[in-house]
Design a protein around this nucleic acid. Structure first.
Lengths: 247, 247
DNA sequence: CGCACACTTGAACCCCCTCAACCCAAGTGG
DNA sequence: CCACTTGGGTTGAGGGGGTTCAAGTGTGCG
């Protein structure tokens, strides 16, 4: 389970001041810290790299760290004892991980492609909060937007059809991850069909069939297994919104 | 839509100092405010009553208020244009409502039994936060525990069977709402079967059949439509945890 | 008594799941 | 170079859990 643990970053050049040169800072909670105070942030930050497949947060373990994803993508998930898995979300670059009031994690996190994180201990984050109250505001804002996303996902899981789920996923992943071109019509999917299925409450076969159907209708194209071209965005949007009859 | 709007509380006796005598304060975010500062809290609080059926938060509207439920129960839900509904949660006494960073509500709220709320405007809550930083901490804690509940609900909606969903619901409702006796074996369900169904991603018929099946097996009893007696808690717990074979 | 409303129960159906075969690309090793 | 393996993806056939449709029960209330 714990093989391939996070390796220490090879410090190279500008990475001596990781926070000052961090290009995801403004997109993350760390944006709450002013330029001149970055040294304090950097002092308590640890950078870690994880290989694909590495589970770096395990549900039920003591929540000692907070994480900020600075490279790659992770899946967040919960398991049932018999192996059924629900992916509650994907954490792309800039995503803050580990919000927990109780002292154990409520979910697991696994790198689905090589991941780099910036992590802090609970204590150190708390010390930062005392010094920079704006940080807490930022954390609250993060928690709220995650809550909104979770509610949207509940609607999807509880009430949408397979076709609507896949359409919703394609649109929201493009918008949320930023892994797409300027119009978000060409998106990169770093996760497998199986991980998409576990996110949408479907099976891998249903996801595959649904994508095939969309492709056959000319709504999307799939240049490769990890890329999707959106050809008919209005059609996908109507499906995702639940406006379309079961055509 | 807006008939039966919140009526002004008839101020009677001790209700001139509502916060000082509020018996849900310690259970809610207001517990962050010290006794001696309660006057300031009371000064910005407004009490409102809503009848059963009253929608007092509407998805998409400007999020002007924050609410604290002090009586009764509300359902929180999202709708699809064709009427499909997902109940994302139930807000019982002590529940804080309206967390939103964006300025519109992401869900609607409807009183499912007569509800009393204590509400604040965004501005006033913000002013309170500036004065009492502990309040923000409390809000963050609230948001985190809601997030944990939402993740659990995603697991339920995405991967559990109807039987497991109903079992999970009975146990979690008892624990979360406090609407039960000392061992939580006799619980009051203020919501209809239809609202349970919309919470669990099922139909009303499936909820009914599942409860009937549990009753036939002697796992629960239903003295009335709004009451459930848990007779075999270990059985329900195994089901809810996903430990039990499809017996 | 009659109506409204929530709940229950039965029967038929269907969307999605299960099971299974197959395709395809990327290694890997001889 | 090719045989073999491995992992992800696709497609087909059949089955099942939950839905849909419909009828029936119970209860509070005028």
């Amino acid at each position: 389970m714990h093989t391939g643990a996070g390796r220490r970053l090879v410090v190279a050049g500008h990475e001596r001041e990781p926070c000052a040169h961090c290009d995801v800072r403004q997109r993350s909670v760390c944006g709450a810290i002013l330029e001149e105070d970055l040294a304090q942030l950097a002092a308590v930050a640890e950078i870690r790299d994880y290989d694909r497949g590495k589970v770096f947060i395990e549900e039920g373990e003591r929540a000692q760290y907070f994480y900020n994803v600075t490279r790659g993508t992770a899946k967040l998930f919960k398991l049932l004892p018999d192996g059924r898995q629900q992916v509650t979300g994907f954490a792309a670059i800039g995503h803050f991980l580990g919000l927990a009031v109780v002292d154990t994690y409520a979910f697991s996190a696994e790198a689905i492609e090589p991941v780099r994180v910036c992590r802090f201990t609970r204590n150190k984050l708390h010390a930062l909060i005392v010094e920079f109250p704006a940080l807490e505001e930022r954390l609250l804002a993060t928690a709220c937007s995650e809550l909104v996303a979770a509610q949207e996902q509940m609607l999807l899981l509880g009430r949408k059809t397979a076709l609507e789920r896949v359409a919703s996923f394609l649109l929201s992943w493009g918008a949320a991850s930023g892994m797409c071109d300027e119009h978000c019509n060409r998106l990169k999917l770093p996760m497998t069909r199986s991980e998409i299925a576990d996110h949408l409450g479907l099976t891998i076969e249903t996801v595959s069939r649904t994508l095939s159907r969309m492709r056959a209708q000319g709504r999307i194209a799939t240049p490769s297994n990890t890329e999707i071209l959106i050809l008919d965005r209005p059609w996908l949007e109507e499906l995702a919104a639940g406006t379309m009859l079961p055509a």
